[in-house]
Design a protein around this nucleic acid. Structure first.
Lengths: 153, 153
DNA sequence: ATCAATCGTTGACATTTTCAATGATCCATA
DNA sequence: TATGGATCATTGAAAATGTCAACGATTGAT
């Protein structure tokens, strides 16, 4: 069996259980399903959800340090090292010394990185639209806003 | 560093990036943060988020088969085996033969399982309330409803 | 009666997570 | 201005999770 297959299908029997109201479970499930979708969508550009996130921030113009990436993506700093290593190896990003602090390293997208990023972005957008097909535009915006607020006060 | 520490803190610099609107990332992050919290809350009763979910459904009265658990929790059937093994070893659940199909196994909470489950439920509820402190009751209900709808048509 | 499909299970393997330790650098302050 | 504690990226090891293929038992359709 594969996990991402049954999305938006009819409600399974167990969805009656009050566990189906646990925010934690809902998040886990929607994320699990979405992850599979996103990874599938990103396979064309040889990225995974994770490396895509890093590339996305590297190409954002915000000049993130690795520590900022770690915190923002809820990953351990050591995981960022591996992700950036991989992207750097492929010539999609470069590490630069921090502007004011020589301990930090800023991760920046290269032109090639920007190119891949544009493709990846389009793919992910399509994948998300797909996943949230059951919600109309307003509901989708509401969901986004609520998630953001829950996260960042 | 630990991941769950900074929740609901002030908005980090990177939250400006348009990536902060990616539903996928928002879900991943909220889930990651919540997961750490839940596991922390469940440590008292020696459960993890996963085993808690299984125990919860086992105690729901819905008499779930292992396959139903796998699908509902977005896990591979083989992962359910391990989770149920562990709970059964601790005497919290039992496997019963399927009512109509002898291949399936129904997972049921024991009295002791119910007892632990009640404690775990309270812990998780508190943890969730904590995580969603920024949302009022109505918003929380909206979030729940939107997540449910996105998942099950 | 047979054959394909489904269920739980096992075992192997890859990926991800988590944690502690290290050298380089920063910053406060004595 | 030197010293010590904190922070940064990095390494490496251990634990948890995810993925996949194969198996025996059982089902249901032909």
């Amino acid at each position: 069996m594969t996990i991402g297959d049954a999305v938006g299908t009819t409600q399974p029997r167990l969805a009656q259980a009050s566990i189906a109201d646990d925010i934690g479970l809902l998040l886990a499930k929607l994320h699990a399903v979405g992850s599979v979708r996103n990874n599938r969508a990103l396979a064309d550009v040889q990225l995974r959800e994770r490396s895509y996130s890093v590339l996305r921030l590297a190409c954002s113009g915000l000049e993130p340090t690795q520590r900022e990436l770690a915190e923002f993506l809820s990953l351990d700093p050591s995981q960022i090292v591996a992700l950036v290593d991989e992207l750097e190896r492929r010539g999609l990003v470069v590490r630069e010394q921090g502007r004011t602090d020589r301990r930090q390293k800023i991760v920046l997208g290269t032109p090639e990185g920007e190119r891949i990023h544009a493709q990846a972005l389009a793919a992910v957008r399509a994948s998300e639209r797909d996943q949230l097909a059951a919600l109309d535009d307003e509901e989708e915006a509401t969901l986004r806003a609520l998630l953001r607020r829950a996260l960042w006060h």
